[in-house]
Design a protein around this nucleic acid. Structure first.
Lengths: 350, 350
DNA sequence: GCTTGTCTCTAAACCGGTTTAGTCTTCGAG
DNA sequence: CTCGAAGACTAAACCGGTTTAGAGACAAGC
């Protein structure tokens, strides 16, 4: 009539063996006779024994959990469909392996370092997944200092060998997007980019600029944003206000593209007749708005899956090499069309 | 030159006292002279000591973590802006108190029970926050069975006293929305509801029906969905296909409202001239689309904050009573307007 | 002077596992 | 027949904290 759950000692007593042997048997380690092993497992099962992570963590110096620290304004996370999909991919790996995900959302980057330090000091997690890499990211030396293993989404520019990366190449899709627009006759194509300090945002921007250059177009306008719908709207308004406004805009995420579409419409423009719009993310909403959003699909779920799997392998001591996922794909829908003939350029404003 | 971090024993040795006394001093417990306490704290600080949650958890039988299990398809979470805001509110309470959030995204409800059981069996968390309550929710008896403390978002219909609830009343805002539409001359107002088995979705539907009834309108059409943008689009198409199509639609979330707007547009309708649309969530994107979405704002962040705070108090043994948050608020923007005069009802379809 | 009580502190048990050192059998090789 | 090695198993240490029982010092009360 024990109130609390059975411990390994209870199992040992019931099976008539020592604690140590039970531990061996339960962990599939050699040195246990087949009969004893079977009996121990049977008894453990009968008693409804299950291991206490607490005890196991303490003695084996392993947390059986991985961390994910997201340093973004919650509103921006909400606008972005990346994280939910990403996290579900991570879970898909963790759950069957008995691991947990410790999530921290820290709002601003100043609390970030403290959060990683706490995770490491308290030994809450065995490793972390690094997202939203920044240029000269201070987390790379920080993680080394506090001895926390990590996998990064995209390669860091600090010390590429320090942290294994799972990469997903945006460039081909962005080139395709620009080529697609150029093919439709667009020559003034602008880019509403993410924060320049975020490597992936910078990389998308660079890919964009490169694609424009290789199409022999003039240097385009690029406006930097914080990835929020609000900032996407502001950037769009700014672009449309220009004397020679762009006839196409490539956004760094769907939320901004959708907000931009709203702004364009309010400015009296028809999308895609007067303005073509390309998003990035392939969010569900983009498929249903009118016009349906031409966008770039990245496999966020697969990214989470792969990163989590790599991290667990890393934590278990395996050497993990960088992993390259299939590149992002351009999805052409209805928000892009033939460029307007020149005169149209003045139908703007009110 | 110790490689690993200092333990309480190191501090004790350095301060010339016993382990036990160090523990007392660090936990602000009586029975330590002021001088000893000061010295111990100074030494601990100097050595850079920080507690190991692992050890602390094992000996004190407390996990210092709370769980959140989300049983939804990841795509639906991505469409929904609730969880990111909610989680950031939760973090705001947890982080300063040294607690962690263990997140599980389980995709479908069948894995849910196993997840809770695992969380409890492994003693990963001290309590959980229950979201997306269902009618006759099996988690209520389950949590009792496995002895996991919990706070629920909204009151359960199983045994209201079993789990303290943090409630946020949608009804006034939904009544306001209906009144607002009725005031604009609408008489055929439909509702695109969430899954009926979700209590909050059912409650929103009930509020809607009640508001319609008290406005003396005929029983309206209600279509049930799974909350996804895709299903919102389907429901909208179905509504617009009816002989007597509604002139206004109240959606159970913004994602569906936005998808519905796209469908309406594709059907050749102008929003809000031919069809008024009301969302629910006050997502950022809704503010920027054209027309800007009339919607209902709920304080997801505050909900997370309050629920997490209540849960921690509960875990510490305090009696926690139900907490009622300020009700949701209708936000009128541009997607609602005067009802079209009757003939308009036939401009639909292609 | 002796008891009682309070304060400060130590030693040791404890939480529930893992791991190491070492004992006891058994069996094959020489 | 003896020795060595392998296999099965036990006892005990250990992880890093918390908590309890109790020791010693000292002051107050009778």
């Amino acid at each position: 009539m024990k109130a609390s759950r059975p411990t390994i000692a209870d199992v040992a007593r019931a099976a008539g063996v020592s604690k140590g042997l039970v531990s061996f048997a339960l962990n599939d380690r050699p040195g246990v006779s087949p009969e004893s092993r079977a009996r121990i497992l049977a008894v453990a099962d009968e008693l409804g024994w299950s291991p206490s992570v607490r005890a196991r963590s303490l003695s084996s110096n392993v947390s059986f959990a991985v961390g994910l620290v997201i340093a973004r304004d919650p509103e921006i996370i909400a606008d972005d469909s990346f994280f939910p999909s990403f996290i579900s991919g991570v879970e898909q790996v963790l759950a069957p392996r008995g691991q947990s995900l410790v999530l921290s959302v820290v709002g601003d980057e100043h609390l970030e370092e403290a959060t990683y330090r706490r995770l490491a000091a308290e030994r809450r997690v065995d490793g972390v997944i690094l997202t939203d890499l920044r240029s000269a990211d201070s987390r790379v030396p920080l993680l080394r200092e506090i001895g926390l293993r990590a996998i990064s989404l995209g390669r860091t520019d600090v010390d590429a060998s320090a942290i294994p990366a799972v990469t997903l190449d945006d460039a081909p899709a962005i080139h395709d997007a620009v080529r697609h627009l150029v093919g439709l006759g667009h020559t003034r194509i602008a880019h509403v980019a993410g924060p320049d300090r975020l490597l992936h945002a910078a990389r998308r921007k660079a890919s964009f600029l490169h694609a424009i250059a290789s199409s022999n177009l003039a240097t385009p306008t690029v406006i930097e944003t914080d990835f929020s719908a609000a900032d996407g709207a502001r950037a769009t308004a700014e672009l449309l206000d220009r004397a020679k406004r762009p006839t196409a805009i490539v956004y760094a995420n769907d939320a901004m593209a959708i907000a931009g579409l709203g702004v364009a419409r309010r400015a009296g423009l028809d999308v895609p007749r007067d303005l073509s719009i390309v998003g990035f993310d392939d969010s569900a909403i983009g498929r249903y708005i009118e016009p349906a959003l031409t966008t770039v699909a990245t496999d966020a779920r697969g990214w989470g899956f792969t990163a989590a799997d790599a991290l667990l392998r890393l934590v278990e001591g395996e050497e993990v090499a960088d992993i390259e996922l299939p590149p992002a794909q351009l999805v052409v829908r209805a928000s892009t069309a033939t460029a307007p003939s020149e005169p149209t350029a003045d139908r703007r404003h009110r």
